[in-house]
Structures are given as C-alpha cells and as structure tokens.
C-alpha cells in the first residue's frame, strides 16, 4: 500500500464517540476520524433543540475546539465527550 493509500485509508476510518450530558444521558455518533467536531456539535445541538454556542464540549477536562478532529484529539472508538450547558452568572441562590 502506498503512502497516499495509507493516508486515504486513515481518513476513512470511522469511530463511534459518545457525548454525555450533565444528566448522564449519552448520545452516540459514528464519524470519520477526519470529521471536524463542529459538525458533531451542531448535529448534537440540533437533536437536542439547543444552540451549539450554549454548550461546552470537553474531553478529559479540556475544551474541544470546533475545528479539531478525532484524529487530532487522538480519540479512540467509544471515547466519551462531556457536554456542559452554559450557565448564567450572578444568580443569588
């Protein structure tokens, strides 16, 4: 297999990732390792009926940028992303 073929093969490799929300509910996405996470975030937000800008997505404690891909993040099959809904600050409890 040539280097070009190898690169193409890696680009087509798919993994399943899980997005877990604050209630513990998980949503699964099967995506290519080269898919930008922005696409996942927007699809997730759309499914949940919320704006993608109102959610933060974290991997092992670090925020994920929309331009990142699973390959860049060194994600493996079944890896989990945590999503946190934006809060409004200043509330007196």
């Amino acid at each position: 297999m040539s280097d070009n073929e190898k690169a193409a093969d890696e680009g087509n490799e798919t993994i399943t990732i899980r997005i877990r929300d604050q209630t513990g509910e998980e949503t699964f996405f099967k995506i290519k390792k080269t898919t930008k996470m922005q696409k996942v975030f927007e699809t997730y937000a759309s499914r949940k009926g919320i704006q993608s800008s109102s959610i933060r997505f974290m991997l092992d404690g670090e925020r994920i940028l929309p331009d990142a891909t699973p390959k860049m993040l060194e994600m493996d099959d079944q890896d989990q992303i945590d999503c946190m809904l934006e809060q409004t600050g200043g509330r007196s409890f």
């Binding site: 704006q51 800008s53 934006e86 809060q87 409004t88 600050g89 200043g90 509330r91």
Partner: peptide, 17 residues
Amino acid sequence: ATGYVEGLDPGQWLSTS
C-alpha cells in the same frame, strides 16, 4: 455569539461565555 453583550444590560445575568 451574537446577543451575548445583552447580558450586560441593567439587571441581566452575564452568560458564562
């Protein structure tokens, strides 16, 4: 995002972003 600055209007809560 658009609209976040409105959190600085009087009496509003700031978004965490």
